[in-house]
Amino acid sequence: MKRRPVLLLIGVLAAGLTGAPPASATGSPTGVAVTVARFAPPDQATKAYTYDTALIAPGAAVMVVASPARTSTKTLLSVYGLVPNRTYGAHAHQRPCGALPTDAGAHHQHAVDPVQPSVDPAYANPDNEIWLDFTTDARGRAVVAASVPWRFADRRAGSVVLHAERTATEPGRAGTAGPRLGCATVRF
C-alpha cells in the first residue's frame, strides 16, 4: 500500500474516533496521536520493536490511533502480519519502546496502584488502564478499540505493548498477560 492511502485511512479513522478533523500523522500531546509502523528487531527498530520474531515477525505492521474526547480517551489498534488465529494481550505502557522489552515500563494507570507491580483488580482493569487484547484472523490481522472514562493529564502513556497471552483479571494476577512480544511507541 502506498503512503498516501495509508495517511488517508488514518485521517478517516481519526476523524471517526473524534468527530473532528485529524491531527498530523506524528500525533500531538493535545490531540489525536497516530503511530503507523512496521515491527523490526531492536537493533533496527525506530517505532515498533519485535522481541519475539516467531510471534511478531519483522515487517508485520501496527497502527495505533488514540483520541481524546470530552471525558474519555478512545484508542484503536490495528495489526497485520502476525500469527494467524492467535490471541495476544495488549496495553498502553508508561514509556516509549526501547531495545529491551522492559524499557516501556509498567502499564499506564489513570489511578496509580500504590503497590507495584500492580495485580490488584481495583487498579489493573480495563477502566483504569487501556487494554487492547485481540485475536488475529486467518490472515494474521486484527482491529480492536477501547474507550476509557478519562483523559490523559500530566502523565501520558508512551507505547502499546503486545503480550503473549490474554490479560488476566483475577486477584493476584490482574493485568498480567505473559511475556512482552512487541512494542509500538505512541505519543498519547
Rank of each mutant, 00 (worst) to 15 (best):
Ser78Trp: 05
Arg180Cys: 05
Thr73Gln: 12
Arg155Val: 14
Arg38Ser: 14
Thr176Gln: 14
Val79Ile: 02
Gly172Leu: 02
Gly16Asp: 10
Val119Phe: 13
Ala145Ile: 00
Leu55Pro: 12
Ala48Arg: 10
Cys183Asp: 13
Pro179Val: 15
Gln44Ile: 01
His107Ala: 15
Leu100Trp: 09
Val119Ala: 13
Thr71Tyr: 07
Val32Thr: 12
Arg155Ser: 14
Gln94Ile: 05
Ala33Asn: 07
Asp127Lys: 05
Gly158Trp: 13
Val83Gln: 07
Arg166Pro: 07
Ala145Met: 02
Pro21Gly: 08
His163Glu: 11
Pro29Asn: 12
Gln94Asn: 09
Trp150Thr: 09
Val112Asn: 08
Ser118Lys: 10
Val161His: 02
Pro84Gln: 04
Ser28Val: 09
Phe134Val: 00
Pro171Ser: 13
Glu129Thr: 06
Val32Phe: 08
Pro121Asn: 14
Tyr80Trp: 06
Ala15Ile: 07
Gly182Leu: 03
Gly11Lys: 05
Asp137Gly: 01
Asp103Tyr: 04
Ala20Leu: 04
Pro171Thr: 07
Pro117Leu: 04
Ser24Gln: 07
Gly16Val: 06
Pro22Tyr: 12
Gly27Cys: 04
Val64Ile: 06
Arg151Ser: 09
Ser118Gly: 14
His110Lys: 14
Ala48Met: 02
Glu165Trp: 14
Pro126Val: 05
Tyr49Trp: 12
Arg156Lys: 11
Glu165Thr: 14
Leu7His: 02
Tyr123His: 15
Arg173Phe: 14
Arg187Val: 08
Val186Gln: 07
Thr136Gln: 05
Val148Thr: 11
Pro5Ile: 00
Thr30Met: 08
Leu76His: 01
Asp43Leu: 03
Leu8Pro: 00
Ala90Trp: 03
Arg38Tyr: 10
Gly81Tyr: 10
Ala145Arg: 01
Ala104Ser: 06
Lys47Asn: 15
Gly31Asn: 02
Pro114Met: 14
Asp120Arg: 15
Ser24Pro: 01
Ala99Leu: 02
Val83Cys: 08
Tyr88Gly: 10
Ser28Tyr: 07
Ala168Ser: 10
Thr185Met: 08
Arg156Trp: 07
Ala184Tyr: 08
Val34Thr: 03
